[in-house]
Design a protein around this nucleic acid. Sequence first.
DNA 1: GCGCATCTCCACCTTTTGGGGGAGGTCAGA
DNA 2: TCTGACCTCCCCCAAAAGGTGGAGATGCGC
Lengths: 224, 224
Amino acid sequence: MLRVMVVDDQALVRRGFALILDNEPDIQVAAEAANGIEAIEAAQAHQPDIILMDIRMPEMDGLEATARILEAGDATCRVIILTTFDPDEYVFRALRAGASGFVLKDIPPEALVEAVRTVAEGGAMLAPGITQRLISQFAQKLGAGRNLAERLERLTTRECEVLKAIADGKSNAEIAEALFIGPATVKTHVSSLLSKLELRDRAQAVVFAYECGLATVGERDVGF
Amino acid sequence: MLRVMVVDDQALVRRGFALILDNEPDIQVAAEAANGIEAIEAAQAHQPDIILMDIRMPEMDGLEATARILEAGDATCRVIILTTFDPDEYVFRALRAGASGFVLKDIPPEALVEAVRTVAEGGAMLAPGITQRLISQFAQKLGAGRNLAERLERLTTRECEVLKAIADGKSNAEIAEALFIGPATVKTHVSSLLSKLELRDRAQAVVFAYECGLATVGERDVGF
DNA sequence: GCGCATCTCCACCTTTTGGGGGAGGTCAGA
DNA sequence: TCTGACCTCCCCCAAAAGGTGGAGATGCGC
């Protein structure tokens, strides 16, 4: 039995969703809440499997509440954002907060039920248009450095290693140490790769490394 | 009327999907193809609205074919990848190729029909698990530079602008020109921001800018 | 008004970087 | 075998970068 919690500041909307879901044999509305604060408390108290969360609410909005509930971690629930609007800003904040779904309130009841089941099974459900935008963004990032990757192929193995080290923020001396070669050799490699890639200095080399995918955001701890 | 093309090397599978779709009053299977090469030709000849594309095929695989068809551009069709497997590699290549959907062959017939309609309307449809993974990846990138963004707040407006320019690969002289200030001033700002962010040189500053989201991949043309 | 942060610029200095050119060694392929 | 591509390291030099300290101007809030 799937235990669902519905969070919306409008009682009528809340009851509507609750009725739709309660109508399903395997779904049970275990709790309701009218704002973010209540939602956090209710989530703690009732430990639902799925939370349907509105965004616009008094006291605390749904995105903030989602972030806090999922941050707490002791609840293993998953959140579906259910809203009338879908500006990018909301979507990104929602995904970052950890939501597993983002659907618009104008969807047919069956789709809502389907979304709940999908998310409960470990999947995610986004409104089709949002999925589309997410894909576009993703494809853009993935495809960004194709022609740049060609330039990359002109480099020798060693030069590539040096470039990677540069993209790590290392100085020539540090690179030398890391690669077990002399500083002079590093300089040679750096000069060579800069010229091959038609770059002026190591700062541009770092940009190049990120743009062509040699370095990617989030794979390093920026402690330096 | 939605004109659909089905591409799969197994005739039985192909006919099965075609029958399911033809059964819908508003959908018509306009063409079929058994491999990537045929698919490209058939897409050219029949100009379908939607292409259901298998990945594993002789001659040319579905991802390659998708890329070529969408690259051609004169076709305004949209592609749904339909496969038995879903390794990340396939998914990323598919999205990069420009696919608007990625669903598994084990979905129920109604879901397939729904996917076709959704994509035809400009949306995108991914298998729930894939949506989930896409979201995770996205959230990771988005959330990567949170603690870094804090450090960013220590900077003044001007320092931020200089940092952005550094992340653009500009030299101090170029920054001076771009911001209409003297080179000496740029040096002051650079020194200040490096010290505030606890960085050593501009190369590390570039890394920092990318990691904290001040600069993002794909938003610049790397011509330098 | 006063303090404070910010933006602007200067001079002086050291370190790093990048370019040019050279040179020895290895190793694969013609 | 010899050529060519790599990797390694050297010297010298000029340019850029980065650090330190100082200074005038502005504007904002107490």
